[in-house]
Design a protein around this nucleic acid. Structure first.
Lengths: 208, 208
DNA sequence: ATTTAATGAACGAGCGTTCGCTCGATATTG
DNA sequence: CAATATCGAGCGAACGCTCGTTCATTAAAT
């Protein structure tokens, strides 16, 4: 006679969405400040604008909040990317623009990206692969652009080089987020984009 | 009337070192498995081979253990690097060797590096800068090699490009550690070193 | 005998989670 | 149109437990 087994499906969908959004927004604020582990469920409830009891009407475990947060952040990043990046063009310029735009997104969502990076590991065995897969999807966006470029003869890379290069772009973008303690002292975002693009595309050899 | 204020200075230096080493060794094992937050002080004590009471004879707070662990891991990585890398030569080959060796060290100390990466943020306001500084020292090793190369006319990079490139090498090394879930499916360590070196040095433009 | 090292039971703050209750809104009845 | 019954979102005190930390006691060393 489990009383509260599937509360969500019974409740009004609109309300559930609204409450979840409140939760995610409040939780992200807190996680940015103190991280997942240091944040208590009571704090999340308070920041969401309702009580601890109500919080548990919409989740089963504290970890569920983390999952919702990570999910949302990935969607946010991916949406912004898809909105602005053209993966079909396949010329050098659209690659440069994609890199620049991605770096800017990472910069805008610095805290969010940092949160995800530092806390994703705390996700359970089920949620983690789901989230990591979302990351691979984003790497695949760069892979696609690169493939088009190779197809158009802009440069030559084999399949495995493309994959690694896409990972590099992705990670060096994140680097702007998780190493800002060192990088912000040295570069503005624009400088970072410029130099990084140059290093990525031209390498260091044979330059005038 | 603080009784146990400075226990270390009173106790036998040899013993303190020995106990600390036991602690670090035990703690690293546990942190690798479960992370810092999920690891209990009692577990650390047990893994170190003594009791919870004894543990607190050699530290004041749980966080102290994390500090000791991070400190040790950095020293370990740096020692191995210094032991094998020649920063004075300044030719292309010694740069390649340095990259390859660094990547190998990251591979050997995968778990340790991962631990540090994921847990360093839990360090207090005092210890964190100290640890981050150790990281900058390692980046500086690559900067030195690069400077020598530039000095020898191997390639041309300005000061800021050198700094960023050094960060890139450092982070792309760590990438092998913290993105192994994706990368190990695609590359062996040797392949990773080879392709990454090529991409770093030659870039992607103008290749035959 | 005195000092130093080691111990682990005891403490208590803080945590995630639960569940009996409230109370306004809605539906039903007379 | 009341009067009444039903519903369920919202609530927060209370529970059970974990964990970091302490300290009185014992054992070992000098």
């Amino acid at each position: 006679m489990k009383k509260r087994e599937v509360p969500a499906s019974v409740k009004d969908e609109r309300l559930v969405k609204k409450r979840r959004n409140q939760m995610i927004k409040g939780a992200i604020t807190l996680f940015k400040q103190k991280g997942f582990h240091q944040t208590t469920t009571r704090e999340i409830a308070r920041a969401s604008g309702f009580s601890i009891g109500t919080l548990y009407e919409y989740i089963r475990k504290k970890e569920d909040v983390l999952y919702l947060v990570c999910d949302r952040i990935y969607d946010e990043v991916r949406d912004r990317m898809e909105q602005a990046i053209d993966t079909r063009q396949g010329d050098l310029n659209s690659l440069k623009l994609a890199i620049a735009y991605y770096f800017k997104v990472v910069d805008e969502l610095q805290d969010e990206v940092l949160v995800m990076y530092q806390e994703a590991k705390s996700l359970g065995k089920d949620s983690l692969p789901y989230v990591l897969n979302k990351e691979l999807q984003m790497v695949a966006m760069f892979e696609n652009i690169l493939k088009r470029c190779v197809g158009n003869g802009v440069f030559h890379l084999n399949e495995r080089e493309i994959q690694l290069f896409a990972h590099n772009i992705f990670v060096l973008g994140q680097m702007w987020g998780f190493r800002r303690w060192a990088l912000k002292k040295l570069y503005t975002l624009e400088e970072y984009i410029e130099i990084q693009t140059k290093l990525l595309l031209e390498g260091i050899m044979k330059r005038t």
